[in-house]
Design a protein around this nucleic acid. Structure first.
Lengths: 338, 338
DNA sequence: AGATTTTGAGAAAGCGTTTTCTCAATCCCA
DNA sequence: TGGGATTGAGAAAACGCTTTCTCAAAATCT
């Protein structure tokens, strides 16, 4: 049998011999980090393009000890928030010649640490979105993930930078919006117990009620999905509140949907707010009043932090905070004057 | 100065010396592909866990010539369709121990080929979503991307498998739905000229009008985004059609939004359909009648094809086609009987 | 013109694994 | 019990690059 001609990925040595120089020289002109005679450089480049030489990233990675790739771990690729973060990171990173590896834990948070660790080993760093991970687990995990940037989390046991959204302030603004419209009985349809950003919202609300003692606040328990919102309608109605702060846009939309089926008018009977301003928040019926979060910017800044970390140009331990701003739309109005 | 203790990533050789065996043996027990004395294996494993040894993927990749990673190239990470594909691929791949590298061309299709090539070099294969790439460019590119699976594209110059959605049939079903409601003047707000799936829709409609000669079809030109839909309202009204087939849900929503502002009632004055059934299609006002596309399933099957390709278990050149099914919601109804 | 510095390219040593290739030890059966 | 088969582990050769290390040639200085 004829010896099978090897699949012929052309390598650096092919270019070297074609150009009549050594491997080292080819590498040098390809990476341009050392002075090399212009004429020889030209010859090498010509040989390279002629052979359509493309350096093999695996060899490069191993030799340089880096991959030009960062990992982004998210709990749910179906969630608009994480999609936004991912998009922001991916585009910003691409702009600097880096690629993004996805690690979607699909909400099984027990896998999150393992997934993150694996991503870290394959990449030069990781951007971690793990809103449900316990603080202790995070503290334990973080050091092994350096360089690491946290999204919507902070931890003081580790000096990794964070980029976070001020959910506490945002929910206060929303509550103030409702209060400003005349609502005094307000209910918060809270998110998952273990959610860090939910805790932030609760803290914000506590602050709000402290400074606005006339407000009667009820805390209802729910989750973070459309369905959770849908199912919370009963509790919401029962609460007697006229202004409803939903955990996020998804739950708000679920709630809206359910209220509509129950014949309860928004905003005439009940005012409802969301949180995040996901792309479709403006198209609900009625359009959703919400606190807009510039989520892709969060992703972009997460990359900026990562870049600084990788370049060693990182400023001292930084946490960047984004302020949501309330967008008043049709789902809120003055309470019924009964 | 004290010799800086090397950052001490522990490697296979550390395990080897700790267990008193050779590198080769450690590798063998870690990969379990060769018989090795149980007692020695135990010793190695113990040493490994004790040192928390984690094989370095770069070394592995180079030695094995594979990365356990596939690239997914999409034109726009902000588009729900590609998000869905990405999610499907990512989850299915993760299930088989593969990771996904994102390549978002951000709609600059001139970069698409380069991006795809780069992704291919870094990964074991690529899933390509490139609805706007010209056939000739695709044909030229495809061979260099093997193993490759195409999403919503086919090419006969290359034997790569495809998983596609039957947009032609879907739009016909939608047209039939409108026709069934009594509409005879129908307008299609078409997508980007260069879009392959738009061409499919056009072909489907042509077939539809051939078999339904009494239907008066107008083709309007638009694009694929919400804004495109919004801006098409004028043309739509001018067309005199009573049933509007929008390119996709996004444009349908934009159209809906604009029509609402113009005081045109849907579905009383105009019936509107979308395409895709993105997660929010059911929450528009009125809820959008559309052709549902099981988009994450498309992604999952794209992975399945890729897996077969990688395993060499690929059945002969296959193209898997998914049928959309129309979901009738509130945005369509009988035409006004003027 | 001889001594000294610069410049530039080749040789070779990694990078951390996997995978032959080898060969000693054990096993099996006549 | 001796010779051929197995079995199992170590040595060493890839994998495809980057980056020292070295050293000859060219350039600069006295």
């Amino acid at each position: 049998m004829a010896k099978r001609v090897r699949p012929a990925r052309i390598g650096i040595s092919d270019v070297a011999s074609k150009a009549g120089v050594s491997l080292a020289t080819v590498s040098r002109v390809m990476n341009g980090n050392f002075r090399v005679d212009p004429e020889i450089a030209a010859r090498v480049r010509e040989a390279a393009t002629e052979l359509k030489y493309q350096p093999n990233p695996m060899g490069r990675n191993l030799a340089r000890g880096k991959t030009d790739t960062i990992g982004v771990v998210v709990p749910d690729l179906g969630n608009p928030t994480f999609q936004g973060v991912l998009r922001g990171v991916s585009r910003a990173a691409a702009h600097d010649g880096y690629r993004v590896l996805i690690a979607d834990s699909s909400e099984v948070s027990s896998e999150e640490s393992i997934l993150a660790g694996e991503a870290r080993r394959r990449c030069d760093g990781v951007v971690l979105c793990a809103p449900r991970m316990s603080s202790s687990e995070l503290e334990e995990l973080a050091p092994s993930l350096h360089p690491l940037v946290l999204v919507n989390r902070t931890t003081d046991a580790d000096d990794s930078p964070s980029v976070i959204v001020d959910y506490g302030q945002g929910i206060q603004d929303l509550a103030a919006h409702l209060s400003g419209l005349g609502h005094t009985r307000i209910a918060y349809v809270s998110g998952p117990e273990s959610s860090a950003s939910n805790a932030l919202r609760l803290a914000g609300l506590e602050k709000f009620t402290r400074t606005n003692p006339h407000i009667e606040l009820t805390i209802l328990h729910s989750g973070s999905t459309f369905e959770d919102g849908y199912e919370s309608a009963g509790d919401v109605v029962e609460s007697g509140a006229t202004g409803i702060l939903a955990f996020n846009d998804l739950t708000a939309m679920g709630l809206l949907s359910s209220l509509n089926e129950l014949g309860i008018k928004v905003p005439e009977d009940l005012s409802v707010t969301g949180f995040d301003d996901i792309p479709f928040a403006r198209y609900t019926t009625p359009p959703l009043t919400t606190a807009a979060v510039p989520i892709t910017a969060v992703g972009e800044h997460a990359w900026a932090q990562m870049r600084d970390l990788l370049n060693g140009t990182s400023t001292t331990e930084s946490v960047e905070v984004f302020q949501p701003h309330v967008v008043s739309r049709g789902s809120t109005g003055a309470p019924a004057s009964d």
